[in-house]
Design a protein around this nucleic acid. Structure first.
Lengths: 347, 347
DNA sequence: GTCCATCTCGGAACCGTTCCCAAGTTTGTC
DNA sequence: GACAAACTTGGGAACGGTTCCGAGATGGAC
């Protein structure tokens, strides 16, 4: 008190001195573990307020071995994979929705997300290192590439991780996914029910398992209605690629009257392509997208789309990861969501 | 070596033992401060590889008082402010672009971003507490509300912070902004040059300074061309509000031939509203938006828009913050970017 | 060969928590 | 009233780094 009021941030010892108890007691009072007298807890509370104490996270983390932080790693296009094509994962509402769902849920779990972009092997190493260094307790892995080695790396290191979509590598990590095959089927059935006779498919990249499943589900269902071999073109989930794919299809099969695209951005591109050729949507050609993103409601006509409850899926990822962190050694689990078709103007 | 190969993660002491040097030397070798013999550095390097050592971030952070982490706090709609209106900040490409720019830049600065959502006073307290607890070295504040108390709080606490847009409170914190007034002027001049005789304005919320500046810039410039009082309606930066505002304007001024909206989402809503009434864009009514977001290229016709280099602005925020963290006590600085009009199909 | 300056390295203190363990206090039972 | 059990509390050792300080070693100048 006689000391020149020092600027140093108060520590547990300071609070203990003011409260007239030991450091250990203050620590217990703060985290209100049972076994501390109510009146002492009261006194400690006042001492904390008086000193303006805030616990130091680094020290706590060092002592407990936990940080209350997880990584959310979103994988964009690798430089090696093509780079410029998709300059920004954030341009795709898909990633925004995942992040949104994760962030919102983690908030209720007293956990903070560190956002890491993965676009190279160096980035991948960084993600793993960050957890190894104890700067985060686990990782949420969101990647579209099937050969992403990160899930395997986490599994091998025994570090908590949850992926969006089943890891193609078969790595034993928890994941959350949607029944993509069923989603493709829903799209097919909707087009057929609408009377489409000659449908086409704009599929995603061949190395993306979820895209493959959607395509397969679509084709399987169409085969039941006599259209086992719909004309197909591939895109990379961007609007531009959707438009290109549409043009490609129209060249070989100008008489189509229905299209299913593996995501909304490509569906929008297809719509642009069709409209540019003077075809009316949905009168001449019906379109069904996938994701039910905000894009679907912004398009004109609005886009019929297979809904993927991304925010809820992301929330589930967060819950599984946190549970796994608190209960180490539990076996990997998985949750599969069911898609729903949302009918709008385009089909 | 005779011990049962323990599963414990290796520590500095382990490396020191293997390398046959002291812990202090290993520490110095790792951060290669000068004053350690090259051959020892070599030996230490091998020992690190052999043991699979990774430095513990919590311990380092405890010793140094730094974390290599910053908060990026994005403020959505407060529950108190209206809540449901904007269920998700991530739906707005604006925030995605800010996050993208920040994340990309921080990566080059050896700093990791913790993403925090701010939607209540409790969230705000959390942001401040996180930095106080030493879990982050500073904060990037992205908020549209003028009465956000966070900038002032950081300034008062003397904690490093950088805001997107000049803080309305006048708090002495660094910020990055765009010349909104000039942006409004650019839109006005473009519409006038195009021959628009009766323009209208879809402004943002009155409590958002940047929106006010855009509106003021627009009106000031229009006044120079004899249209000092353009019919005006307000929106809240969403597509729906843009459509509503457009309807409102058309009711009182059905003969307009040009519209400026304070962001692209509202411009798109306006476009929808006009098209629904059978008006052609840009032939009957020209539209200029603001932001030059991905929305502008997706719309049909594509949207003429005042470009805001958001990613670069965000990058600048990150750089300023990190500089401030490394050089404490520096005075707040600011950077103002210049807007550019990108002409497309809508005007 | 001696002396001094310079450089390298090890010992030990320190950062601020948590948690184990022992000591002290209270309560309850016979 | 004695003794055991249950509960609180404080002391001190981790946790895993960084950094100050002093001791040797080394090299150069005379």
């Amino acid at each position: 008190m006689e000391k020149p009021a020092d600027i140093r941030t108060p520590t547990l010892d300071d609070v203990a001195r003011v409260a007239g108890v030991s450091r250990a007691t203050v620590s217990r009072a703060i985290r209100d573990t049972r076994g501390v007298a109510p009146e002492l807890k009261e006194i400690v509370g006042r001492a904390i307020a008086e000193t303006g104490y805030v616990p130091n996270r680094a020290a706590r983390s060092l002592a407990t071995g936990r940080t209350g932080t997880v990584i959310i790693a979103v994988a964009g296009a690798d430089a090696e994979y093509g780079g410029v094509a998709e300059p920004d994962v954030f341009a795709d509402p898909f990633f925004s929705r995942v992040i949104s769902g994760v962030v919102r849920t983690l908030r209720t779990l007293d956990t903070q997300p560190v956002l890491l972009l993965v676009e190279s092997d160096a980035d991948r190493a960084d993600v793993l290192a960050t957890v190894r260094q104890g700067a985060a307790d686990g990782a949420l892995l969101v990647s579209t590439h099937s050969d992403d080695p990160l899930p395997s790396a986490f599994a091998a290191a025994g570090l908590p991780a949850v992926t969006f979509a089943r890891p193609a590598s078969g790595a034993p990590v928890s994941f959350v996914d949607i029944a993509n095959h069923d989603g493709g089927r829903l799209a097919a059935e909707h087009l057929v029910a609408r009377g489409a006779q000659r449908v086409a498919l704009i599929a995603g990249p061949d190395d993306v398992p979820s895209a493959q499943d959607r395509a397969r589900g679509f084709r399987d269902a169409m085969a039941r209605h006599g259209q086992a071999f719909p004309p197909t073109a591939h895109g990379d989930f961007t609007v531009e690629s959707g438009e290109r794919a549409m043009a490609e299809i129209l060249e070989s099969a100008p008489d189509i009257d229905g299209v299913f695209a593996a995501n909304d951005l490509m569906a929008l591109g297809a719509m642009h392509g069709l409209q540019a050729q003077g075809r009316r949507v949905p009168d001449d050609v019906a379109i069904v997208g996938f994701d039910d993103s905000v894009i679907a409601t912004i398009a004109r006509p609005t886009l019929t789309s297979v809904r993927q409850p991304i925010e809820e899926m992301a929330a589930q990822m967060a819950r599984i990861l946190v549970a796994q962190i608190h209960e180490p050694g539990t076996r990997p689990s998985s949750v599969i969501f069911d898609p729903v078709l949302i009918a709008r103007g385009s089909a």
